[in-house]
Structure formats: C-alpha cells, structure tokens
Design a protein around this nucleic acid. Structure first.
Length: 277
DNA sequence: ACTCGTGTTAGCTG
DNA sequence: TCAGCTAACACGAG
C-alpha cells in the first residue's frame, strides 16, 4: 500500500488530528517493529510529551515532539515508516477514528480490522484524552524509531526541481526504473508509482539512464510530478491510470497493445511495449 | 503446498 | 570504493 502518496495522507492525518495531545502511555512491545530499541525505550522517551509537527520526505515520516514539564528543550523525533502494509490510525477520545484525507467508509474497515486482528497493531501512542495513534501493520515491515537517520534519502519526489532531477537520475547506467526506485536518488517512488510515471512519460522501464536525453528527463520529471499529485488527490497510488492494467492479458488503456511483464530493478514491472520505448 | 508482494537493506560481485 | 544486483526480512493472500 504505502508509497509517497499514502505516506503523505498519513502525515496529513497526524498533522490534523494528533498534534498537541499529551502522550500518557506508549505501547512499544514489538521488538521487531521498534528495533533497535527495546521495549520501554520509546515509552520512556515519549511519555509526557506532545507531537508538535508531522513531517515527511519520500516514504519516511516523522513527528517532532515537545519538551516535558518545565523543559522547553524539544524531545526526540519519532520516526514512523509504514513499510509494505502499514497504516496510521488516529482516534479521538471516544475511540472513533479521524477521517483524515481519506474516503468515506475506509475507517469503518480500519476499525473492523483492528478488532479482528489486534496483534497487527504494532505500536501505539495513548493520549491523555484516551485517544490513540496506532501503527497498524499486517506484514510487519514497517518501523518505529527515535531520531531516524534521514541523510541517505534523496530529495522528495514531489518537491524536486527539474534540474536536480535530471542531474541525479541520469547518473550511472542502471535501467531507469531501478534509478527511480532508489531512495537515495529520489525519495518516495515505489513500484506502482514508477510504473505509472514511466507509462505517462512513454519511456520503457528497461531503458538505461545513460540513453535518456534532456527532453526524456524533462518529460519524466513532469510525469512523476503529475502522477504523484494525482495519486495524493485521489487517495492513493492504486488510483493511477495504468495500475489496473498491470495484469496478464490486460491492454494499454491508451493504445490497446497488450501489456508486457518482466522483472526490472528487482520488482515486477508492467508496461506498454508499443508506446514505451 | 507453493508463489508472490505497493519496502528496505545487508552482502556479494565486477 | 562504488554502482548495481540478489536475497532476506515477516507473514498474509491467492
């Protein structure tokens, strides 16, 4: 589920509903999700503080925290990574989930899921008012950590300018899709957003970056920007124009040619062999 | 039973 | 040393 658009929606939910509520308790028992911390570490670091801001770069999000008591010194950053299947759920004092930027009805499912699979709640902040911020993560590839290292991330895919994009993406000889997926080059592009972007730009995922000219890179930058914006607006990367056609026997929604599948950059990749060159 | 997967990363290779 | 690639991670879904 989570690529940049989903993480941005999660960040917006935290920003709108979880800030400035005092943290009364923390459930950080999941040693895998909270590694390398140990149970109680996050609790000790966070109880008594408030989240003061929700930030994001690529697929990584983090919250700034306040000082405790009289201390004005800010607390640690709380890093939240959704991994492959994580989602953030914030509830109010009555246990009702916040709507966030999400569609109607989605949170009803979230509540049902939590009730049906409480073990998939890997991390919880309990606020003084009784509400919670939960990381619900089926596959357990998400991560919670204090003061996460963000230095390895490239510029955010939604914000990077065309000149820097061209310069960073064109370095090396890898297939363009592998380069798009490399979070140290550009942060935020996942498997589906990469396929959507390349389809919009009419560029083959297998094209080596050293064969792309200036115009190709400009086109790609514009496609990435538009695909990302559209995904955020429509509620997730799965709403992309070509995503529903990433399956055997499907045909390109623009030209009708049969879609092709291969592994590129280590991930299952679908593209239109007619238009994407 | 067996394969696949919307993410990240340690470890290997040339 | 580095760019690039693979396997492994956890665990449910088909």
């Amino acid at each position: 589920m989570p690529e940049l658009p989903e993480v941005e929606l999660a960040r917006a939910t935290v920003d709108q509903h979880a800030l400035n509520r005092k943290i009364a308790d923390v459930d950080d028992h999941d040693e895998w999700e909270c590694r390398p911390h140990h149970p109680g570490d996050l609790r000790t670091a966070l109880v008594g503080r408030r989240l003061t801001a929700a930030r994001r770069r690529g697929k990584s999000m983090w919250c700034e925290t306040s000082g405790t008591g009289r201390s004005r010194t800010p607390g640690p950053l709380l890093g939240l990574h959704l991994g492959m299947s994580g989602r953030i759920i914030v509830t109010d004092r009555r246990g009702k989930p916040s709507e966030g930027g999400d569609r109607l009805g989605r949170f009803a499912t979230a509540v049902e899921q939590i009730e049906r699979k409480p073990v998939w709640v890997r991390f919880t902040l309990v606020f003084e008012d009784g509400g919670k911020l939960m990381l619900f993560d089926k596959r357990r590839l998400g991560r919670v950590r204090l003061d996460p290292d963000l230095d390895a991330l490239g510029p955010d895919a939604e914000e990077v300018g065309v000149a820097e994009f061209r310069e960073r993406l064109s370095r090396g000889t890898a297939p363009v899709k592998a380069r798009l997926l490399d979070q140290s080059v550009i942060a935020g592009v996942g498997n589906l957003l990469a396929d959507e972007t390349l389809w919009r730009a009419r560029i083959s995922p297998q094209r080596r970056v050293d064969t792309l000219d200036r115009d190709d890179l400009t086109t790609l930058h514009k496609a990435l920007h538009r695909a990302t914006k559209a995904a955020i607006r429509h509620g997730g990367v799965h709403t992309g124009e070509v995503i529903g056609f990433r399956r055997a026997g499907a045909h390109c929604p623009r030209c009708g040619a049969e879609m092709t599948r291969a592994t590129v950059g280590g991930r299952t990749t679908w593209w239109c062999p007619q238009e994407q060159r």
